[in-house]
Design a binder for these strands. Structure first.
Length: 258
DNA sequence: CCGCGGGCCTGAGAGC
DNA sequence: TGCTCTCAGGCCCGCG
């Protein structure tokens, strides 16, 4: 990203999930990239102007990066909504069929208070996150553990796949009340420590393998989309079940997840 | 404040 | 073939 600069920005429609901010393309043009960062599921691109380009892929968003200018390229896909022409010569296209993605341009002073970012919980791979932080966040929570993990205020960045995966690794039922792993007598319970460890392990594994959808072969998930298949926990003879919680699928093993 | 249900979009796949 | 239905990796809003 060193020396990368926005030469030209093309918007093929006025909005994604929300409208693009006013003068979006104009404010990006000519800016160089100071730093690329991430907070939860949000991508942060800090610009030389001091503004930060905040982006989210939603469910179906993706960036396609190609060398060379956009001119003379094959006709755009109908879901190519944004084209960033960069220098040195490269084209970054944002494609998003469902348009649940998000882009905003935020001034430095407004970044910390930005609606999308300000409520996020701790980064799961940071030192602040662990059994204690997780136990604290679950204190008094009446929802299920699975739903709590999807709450970005509890821990940032867990989605529907990794919520199921982490709970399986931790041997905890997705149906348990979140408060059952809460802090007691000032100390986190062993299950909170286990779940925090499972979350970091699942994420590190996924990063090592290049993401959930990058690998074509090999076991991708331990429970996700494995309904009816055998549980992979050592010596467990259980069968993976699928249930719906808050309108979303949860996969788990009723035998080894308690 | 919290928890829940619905809505936002399009595409893929199943079943008829 | 085409229709209808369900489901999909996320988040926001409004209700009680």
């Amino acid at each position: 990203m060193q020396d990368a600069r926005f030469e030209r920005v093309l918007l093929r429609r006025p909005d994604l999930r929300t409208p693009f901010p006013r003068r979006f393309a104009a404010r990006l043009r000519g800016q160089s990239v100071v730093r690329v960062d991430r907070r939860g599921k949000y991508l942060l691109v800090e610009l030389s102007s001091g503004d930060t380009l905040v982006m989210h892929l939603g469910m179906s968003g993706a960036f396609h990066v190609e060398a060379g200018p956009a001119a003379g390229r094959a006709a755009a896909d109908r879901h190519d909504h944004v084209v960033f022409e960069m220098s040195p010569s490269a084209t970054i296209t944002f494609n998003d069929p469902r348009r649940f993605g998000f882009m905003d341009l935020v001034a430095r002073k407004a970044l910390a208070g930005h609606a999308a970012l300000s409520k996020l919980g701790p980064e799961p791979l940071s030192p602040e996150f662990g059994g204690a932080a997780l136990a604290r966040a679950c204190t008094g929570k009446k929802t299920s553990l699975k739903v709590a993990l999807l709450d970005q205020r509890v821990v940032a960045g867990i989605g529907n796949i990794y919520a199921s995966e982490a709970l399986h690794r931790a041997g905890l039922s997705p149906r348990r009340r979140a408060s059952t792993i809460a802090t007691r007598a000032g100390a986190p319970l062993a299950s909170a420590v286990r779940l925090a460890g499972a979350i970091t392990a699942v994420l590190i594994d996924a990063i090592d393998r290049g993401g959930s959808y990058a690998t074509a072969r090999g076991p991708r998930f331990r429970v996700y989309e494995r309904e009816g298949e055998r549980c992979l926990t050592k010596r467990c003879r259980g069968t993976i079940k699928r249930i719906t919680q808050m309108g979303r699928s949860t996969f788990f093993c009723p035998v080894c997840q308690k």
